[in-house]
Structure formats: C-alpha cells, structure tokens
Amino acid sequence: MLCVHGIGQQFKGERVLHGEWCPALRDGVGRAGGTLGADDVRCLFYGDVFRPPGRPLSVGVPPYTAADVDDDFERELLLAWWAEAARTDPGVVDPDSRTLARVPRGAQAALRALSTSRFFSGLAVRMLVFDLKQVRRYLMDEDVRAEIQDRLATAVDADTRVVVGHSLGSVVAYEALAAHRTWPVRSLVTLGSPLGVSFVQDFVQGFVHDRLPSGQPGRWPGSVEQWTNIADSGDVVALRKDLGGLFGGDDRRVRDVEVHNGAHAHNVQPYLTAVETGRAILSGLR
C-alpha cells in the first residue's frame, strides 16, 4: 500500500510520515477486523519540492501576508474556503452577508474571516497562504508537477494494490493512476479530497476538477477497480464531498462515505483511524 500526503508537510520526510500514518492505518484496519503490518505501508514524500531554500536567518516559510495572495487561482481558492467555512461554522461570517457590503471580497477579508473559524484555528496567515501556493504550484507549474509525478511513479511497484491519498495527495494519486493504466493498483482511497470542486457559489469558476492535467474531467483512474472517497462534512478543503456523480460511468462508480473527525476535520489521523477507511483498505488488499 502506498500513501500520498497532502499540503503542509514540507518539513517532514518519508520516515516521519510513516511513523505518523502507519499506526493510524493499523488502528483503522484493526477496527475493520483486519491486520496490517508496518512493512505493508509505504509513504511517498514530495513536500521538500515546496520547501523554501535555506538562507541566513530564514524562518523556513516566507512571512506571507494577504498582499502575497496575488494570483487569481489563489484568490478563488481562498474565497471558496471562506464560503465553505461559513457554511459549516456558525462563527464565521458569510462572505455574502450584508454586514460585509462595504468590505471588498479580497484576500484580507477572507483571511480575517477564516481566522475566526474552528477549521483554521491556530494556523498562521503565512502558513495558510503558503498552503494556497502549494496547491497552485502543483496544478500550474509543469516542473513541480512532473517532479512529484515522477516520484510517485518510482514508488509504485508490482506489489502495490492500494493507494491512499489525502488532500492534495488525492489529486496527485488520481492523476498518476489516470495516466498509468497498466499499473497493478486495484483500489484508490481518497481522504478529504478537493477533486470534485468545480465551483463554489459565485466565487470559483474552475478549481481542481476542471484543471486536472491528465485528460478529461471524469476520467476513471486507470486500472483501479474500486474507489472509495471519504470526507468529513466539516472538511473545508473537501469542498464537494461526493465524487460519485463526477467520475466513472455505468459500470464504475465512486463510493462516497461520510465520517466524523471531530474538531480537526481535515487532519489525516482521524481519517486513517476511521473504520470506514479500514474497510476500504481491507477490501482493496483482498
């Protein structure tokens, strides 16, 4: 089984991720009535592609502010997160609220609103902006995407039957599987995935689903026989929770499953420990 991480992991590595993912995966599979060995789990790491180069007095992540959200895609995604956070969290003011009639729908207003949400609580502005830029760079920077896709292609071997992708990692995994139709992978499990988002209210006119680089939207991912998509209803990143109506055809359908992850809806650990995730993995391994 190969695991593909999401955004914000640039300061970790393969072994660190394995130490975080493997126990949680084994718990989830155990709750589903199966067993999973540590050697059965491998973690792809690509976060260092986004890691800023070292320099004197560097703090690791540039001191981004709202002024650095200077790309149309980044603004669209940020505003989409704001809209979804307002929908799921009563403490977040709605971007369409009349109280904001005189406030521009810009990055500064969105970041201010998101700072009051449970979902983004404790996340510094510079980190949130850095995450936005990671998503944009993967989708729109050919060199970045090629490097990450090459790493995944190298990691898949003859024994890889299940691929688990979280957040942006689900996009990375989907694209790779759609492009390599002879791989031995039989099961795809996506967690907190943004793959289904084509628009959110009036803000986004094309996000991940319309910008997938590997062919037509809705294309089935290669040799995969079963695809389980798991999302928490409060996961702001997984703006559209159901993928079943977007991918597949008459004979193949995505199985959409809802879970409850508590206060940290997008964190990977509660996704991995869920019995629903364990069942999907076990089904693929069998």
Rank of each mutant, 00 (worst) to 15 (best):
V200R: 00
L57A: 14
R253P: 00
H18F: 02
W81H: 02
K241C: 06
A158N: 04
L100I: 13
V208W: 00
F247P: 06
I230T: 10
A67C: 03
Q216R: 13
G192K: 05
R161H: 09
D235Q: 06
V268L: 09
V185N: 02
L285K: 07
L100M: 12
D39T: 14
P213D: 05
G196P: 07
F45C: 10
G6S: 09
V144S: 12
L282D: 05
L2K: 11
T160G: 08
V172P: 11
L36Q: 10
L177Y: 04
D40C: 06
R42I: 03
R255L: 13
C22I: 06
D150I: 00
V224L: 06
M127D: 13
F45T: 09
L191E: 03
P95A: 07
W183L: 15
A66G: 09
G206M: 07
Q205W: 04
R151S: 11
R31E: 13
D232R: 04
G234D: 14
E147T: 15
A80C: 14
C22H: 01
V162D: 03
G165E: 12
G28A: 09
E14V: 15
F207R: 01
L195Q: 04
P184V: 09
P95S: 05
R87H: 09
E84Y: 00
V92C: 08
R240I: 12
D141F: 03
L111C: 09
D242F: 09
V103C: 04
G284F: 07
W227S: 07
L25K: 07
D68P: 06
D72Q: 11
P221S: 10
H264R: 14
G262Y: 12
